[in-house]
Design a protein around this nucleic acid. Structure first.
Length: 224
DNA sequence: CAGAAGATCATCT
DNA sequence: GATGATCTTCTGT
């Protein structure tokens, strides 16, 4: 845990500088990479939560696994809109996932925020997640993260460059500290278009030590 | 309108 | 490693 996180731990008098829109108006791949180390902040009615992004995933338009791959639908329409917005969708009947819309020149794309290191508002996160949840599990995974931060359907399309839900510049991790690899699962690309980024060795990432986590759905699909 | 799949997680063995 | 929870969205007819 770095000095910065210790400083953040006591509360909210830190310099939170929201990212500007041009940050998101780049290739989805680069945005996903550069989100590593940035701070996710939610100023909700219940209080503020802050976490350092340690894992993100790029969904490019030509990735078969991207919601936008087969054209625009009501659900994925935020991916076709202005970069810097949130794309929040509901999945598996229980979970929300938070993406930052990122692309250039109208080509749809989004970066899924998969895990953060809790920095502030830990008590609030635990209140939302459950009393017995260990710190490590508060926001390790896209569904857990949205639950800990109180992100719901209503946050879809919100502008991530300002309150209440925003992303701020943080420490940039050096290249050697960030691992990347192809996302796995059905329709995952072998050509390097669908990429996951995470902080190497961080206990806060959902990615396992040996590589990518298994996808239950792909497994079960295979079994049938 | 029915059916299937899903950018997941908690829990059990 | 395996299973159930739970429901939205999309596709095909």
């Amino acid at each position: 845990v770095s000095r910065a996180s210790a400083a953040l731990a006591d509360g909210s008098r830190l310099p939170l500088r929201p990212l500007v829109r041009s940050f998101f108006a780049r290739s989805t791949l680069v945005v996903a990479r550069d989100l590593i180390g940035c701070l996710l902040v939610h100023d909700s009615p219940e209080g503020r939560t802050v976490g350092r992004i340690v894992e993100a995933e790029a969904y490019m338009h030509d990735d078969p696994g991207s919601h936008a791959n087969r054209g625009q639908t009501p659900r994925n329409s935020p991916m076709f809109e202005e970069p810097g917005r949130a794309y929040v969708y509901f999945t598996y009947g229980m979970h929300f996932c938070l993406n930052a819309v990122a692309h250039t020149s109208g080509v749809p794309g989004a970066a899924l925020i998969r895990a953060v290191e809790p920095l502030a508002g830990v008590d609030l996160m635990r209140a939302r997640r459950g009393k017995a949840i260990r710190d490590r599990d508060l926001a390790r995974g896209p569904g857990r993260l949205t639950q800990a931060f109180g992100v719901h359907r209503e946050h879809n399309r919100l502008d991530l460059t300002h309150r209440p839900l925003y992303i701020c510049a943080g420490e940039r991790y050096p290249e050697e500290a960030v691992k990347s690899g192809p996302r796995i699962g059905l329709g995952s690309t072998q050509d390097g278009r669908a990429w996951r980024f995470h902080v190497a060795g961080s206990p806060w990432v959902s990615t396992g030590p040996t590589g990518m986590p298994k996808l239950a759905v792909a497994r079960r699909r295979r079994a049938r």
